[in-house]
Design a protein around this nucleic acid. Structure first.
Lengths: 292, 292
DNA sequence: AGCTCTTATGAATCATTGA
DNA sequence: GTCAATGATTCATAAGAGC
């Protein structure tokens, strides 16, 4: 601890994550949250993995992720298959099946509803306004801090809680004969509720130099939900560094891997100047950098 | 034509759609929109197909659907895999892959965001608030009438409409059953835009006798989008008859197949009494069919 | 008409208990 | 051991009644 704050490390590594991940220890990461290059997208930067090669390209990487993730950790994969020649490609479906065979549990599929999706008009298709947020786990006993992502309760509650309905009373009675007051107290004064598995977020164009940046709110939500302060977050496709920047802000250790040197510079330039212990690799390898 | 209206047929057939579908002609249907029983759900009424048997159960049916669908037609499949033992089941993914092998094009996946999803609280999962609306086609040259589902721009969002609460706006938005947008009268003078592939609809509670009725707005939206008046709509799992009722209201011919006799009666009782030519069949088969 | 308030309930999920 | 049934948990909406 320094100045009353936790000592947080933000580590950025340059290289192909398939190789760099081997430097990380077994069971050392609490959350992997990443948005890998989609098939045939961003050709100029990532070489454009063909859809039919996507699964075989991804499996060696996910094998390492499975190794470095703690048994209580979670892997969030943001991905969406593109439409090509009038058809949705199936490589994402095949990837889910392949990851299960690799040993992952396919725990959940969240939907990211992009409120301001990409504009366009086609004769046989509407604009694509959603992406998959696939949750994979190593075990069933993963950490989940649901209270950290509660949202304000809807207006409907105000009137309802003034005069409790008969149904509420009946249901409460049915539950345990004596104590309906106990349950009512859970509702009165309640201001937040748990969200569901559809996330409504706008896309951001915060980093113009990076074509596929997701909004801060996306990693932020999953970091809240699946980690605590001092935990470690990994993004093997760091890109413009959204995950790292958010993790640092939230007092989580983080590790980012990025294959494009220009992005490494971008990440460094955008990292916050707070009183945190930050180290960058490999350019400043083992050289401790302090801001502020 | 009768009384200035089109002569529309609403045909309801009792039996297992796997067999009944064989009575239909090749290339005779413009739109199939259906919500088959989900694996292991509705055990009492539909016998609860096991997840591991789901694909093999469905393929003979979809083979017939492929035959009866016009080359310009569309097949909309509403389905969602359940979570069991902490994991999402994969039978829906496998079904998509199997349907492609059967000759279907997987054109699109719409998301039905259920605004009023089922309540509940679990330590490792949030409430499930979405279902898949999978679009399959026979050819790339399917009919799509995008203008029929345009929605007003801005509208209730720009605050020009009095001091409606946020809840009221949303409620208004969903009430008229059109799926998107408010009363038609409110649309006058407003510019319209094309929607995207995320549908925000509530589940409905008024078909109390059928446990899994989807809202009118769902088939209505797809019927608008993929058919014109006088076209033919097919629902091989008619259930409480939502698709048929909506199709009739919209001057589309429709064919419904349902295995449970009680539902046939329910459909007939709910069908509107407009000046339409309606035929029900086959009354005589009622005694022969066994179910359960 | 328009707004408020009441009431019912929906393709859910998991842990526990019992056969 | 496995498998089936039961209890506990919980929120956003529509319909309807009332003013």
């Amino acid at each position: 601890m320094r100045g009353g704050k936790m000592n947080i490390e933000t580590i950025i590594k340059l290289g192909d994550c398939k190789n760099i991940l081997k430097e990380l220890q077994d069971n050392s990461v609490d959350l992997v949250v990443t948005s890998p290059p989609y098939a045939d997208c961003r050709k100029q930067t990532y070489g454009g993995i063909k859809p039919q090669n996507y699964v075989e390209w991804f499996l060696p990487i996910s094998k390492e992720l499975l190794r470095v993730l703690k048994p209580t950790g979670t892997f969030i994969l943001n991905i969406k298959e593109k439409a090509e020649n009038g058809e949705r490609n199936i490589y994402v479906l095949e990837l889910i099946l392949a990851l299960r065979k690799q040993g992952w549990l396919w725990t959940e599929e969240f939907i990211w509803h992009k409120k301001n999706c990409y504009p366009g008009k086609w004769p046989n298709r509407f604009r694509d306004a959603w992406e998959r947020l696939l949750q994979f786990n190593k075990t069933k006993n993963f950490n989940m801090y649901q209270d950290a992502v509660k949202v304000p309760i809807g207006g409907w509650a105000n009137g309802r809680l003034k005069n409790l309905s008969e149904t509420d009373k009946i249901r409460d009675n049915a539950r345990n004969g004596s104590g309906f007051g106990k349950n009512i107290s859970n509702w009165i004064g309640k201001e937040t509720v748990y969200p569901d598995n559809v996330l409504h977020l706008s896309t951001e164009c915060y980093n113009k130099k990076h074509s596929a940046a997701f909004p801060d709110a996306l990693p932020e939500w999953f970091i809240k939900l699946f980690t605590q302060e001092g935990d470690t977050v990994l993004d093997p496709f760091a890109g413009s560094g959204t995950t790292l920047r958010v993790a640092q802000k939230m007092y989580r250790n983080s590790i980012g891997i990025e294959i494009i040197p220009e992005y490494i510079s971008l990440i460094k330039s955008q990292m916050s100047q707070e009183d945190l212990f930050v180290s960058f690799e490999p350019e400043l390898k083992y050289e401790k950098v302090k801001y502020g």
